[in-house]
Design a protein around this nucleic acid. Structure first.
Lengths: 126, 126
DNA sequence: GTATGCCTTCACACCGGCGTCAAGGCAAGT
DNA sequence: ACTTGCCTTGACGCCGGTGTGAAGGCATAC
């Protein structure tokens, strides 16, 4: 499978696949002409990468998952290294959730105050 | 008040204040020598900017708040334009919260699955 | 031969809020 | 005159995943 085909099948672009390769996540063989040649298993790997990216992981975080898949496991997240990353990311997400929740409270307060402000003005100009 | 003093009082840097000015948020007068001269009211403005930035607003979003303050209001968020931005940001935050919550669920599921996976292995090698 | 369409590497552009370095002017003390 | 320490403008760097070229090689069909 050439890079264009894999890109299409994975719903992404050749540029992106080369970028993943540059970061050691995907390792195609090379044809005689220098073209990258991917075997079918790589499609699975790319899907794993894309899913994890969508969940907010960085490419470095994703490496253990890919390694886990390559080691023959049926899922990328069952290996200890992956679990460590999962826990770290979980904590991070919890942090963001807490932070966003605080922000939400402040926004709510400001909106309420703005509404009160307008009501007071209306009472003054009835 | 010169830029260095305002920066220190506002807990930020001259570079940052110049950046705000470049984006039309702060408008110092100029001394004869070309130095920026800030009056005390600007400290309040800079504080407003910093608070809103910390709540995830972009500099463009912040403009109406500053304008509201300059218009003589005792808070930057009581003007209609500010309220509009507040609502938009609130919706955005809600979106992020929903998204992060979904991600959290997926992480939880993957962690649980990893734990089950290990237990099964342990039962096989007792 | 040439048109088409894949592939290759190299490298700049983006976003946003700054940090940071460069090169120079102004103010004041010694 | 010289140092010190503020100020000025200008411009590049960062981060991270990708878009988007440029310039060229290879393959296949006409």
């Amino acid at each position: 499978m050439l890079i264009g085909e894999l890109a299409e099948r994975a719903g992404t672009s050749p540029r992106t696949l080369r970028y993943y390769e540059e970061h050691g996540l995907v390792r195609p063989r090379r044809d005689v002409n220098g073209y990258r040649q991917y075997d079918d298993a790589e499609l699975r790997v790319v899907h794993e990468i894309r899913t994890l990216l969508a969940d907010g992981f960085g490419l470095d975080d994703i490496k253990p998952f890919v390694a886990c898949l390559r080691a023959g496991n049926d899922a990328g997240h069952v290996c200890p290294d992956s679990v460590a990353v999962l826990r770290r990311r979980m904590a991070e997400v919890d942090g963001y959730l807490a932070q966003l929740t605080e922000v939400r409270h402040r926004l709510r307060a400001q909106l309420d105050q703005a509404i009160n402000h307008r009501e007071i003005r209306c009472q003054m100009n009835p």
